Simulated scan of single mutants.
Amino acid sequence: MKYSITVLLSVALASLSTACSTPGNFIITFYGYPDNSPPGPDTAHNCGGRNYKAGGSGTYNNPVTIATAPGELNVCEIVYLPLLTKYGRYEDDCAQCTTDYKNGQHHIDIWTGSSTTNGGQKQINCEDDLTPGGRYSIVRNPPTNYTVNAAPLFVAPNTCNSQNVHPNNRAHC
């Protein structure tokens, strides 16, 4: 009997730790090859076999790289971004996100573009166009079957898919 109670309690606690949640009030911005620090596709964390390179299309199995403050999310954690209808994975650190986090403001920066091509000023302009302002929710511990738009946010030399940002989408578990 003691064994059964221990097993049931372990299962219950495990399910609580992986429950979907929708924290809100995130500043969401964008970054890419030209304004990464240093410029290029390098990331702070090696997740999903990418060998410290940013990328991703936004599907659950190929999430787009996101950067944030250390401690804001778990390294290599996958979240769902209703604003973009994409999954993202914490693979990089962000200086402004860290400052904001220390001041009590959640902030994530989302990778745009290629891991091999520098889009220059046109990419930076696109990042500005993609940034809607306001505060948004994300989904932590998301299910794997949310709707996804796997279209790239920026394609060099000058295609900005700002129509793929949906400020009115809301996070739901």
Rank of each mutant, 00 (worst) to 15 (best):
A151E: 15
V64H: 01
L16Y: 07
K53E: 14
M1P: 13
N46V: 03
N161S: 15
G120S: 11
G120E: 04
K86I: 02
F26L: 04
V11A: 11
C94H: 10
N103W: 00
V155S: 15
Y90M: 09
N141E: 00
C76H: 05
I5T: 12
L9T: 15
V79A: 10
L153D: 09
V64W: 00
N51G: 12
A12I: 15
Y3D: 10
T68C: 12
S57E: 13
I138H: 02
I28Q: 06
Y87Q: 02
V75A: 03
T98E: 14
H107Q: 04
E91W: 00
S17Y: 05
A44V: 04
N145K: 13
V79T: 06
S114H: 09
L83C: 00
P23Q: 09
T117V: 15
Y31A: 03
A14K: 05
Y31G: 04
T131Q: 09
Q96A: 12
D128I: 13
H166Q: 12
Q121N: 13
Q163F: 04
Q96V: 10
L73N: 03
D42K: 10
A69M: 12
S137D: 13
I78V: 14
N141M: 14
S21P: 03
P167W: 05
S137H: 04
Y146Q: 01
P34I: 03
Y80D: 01
H107S: 09
T65R: 03
D129I: 05
L153R: 08
T116C: 07
G119V: 07
L130H: 08
T18I: 07
Y52A: 08
P63H: 02
S15L: 15
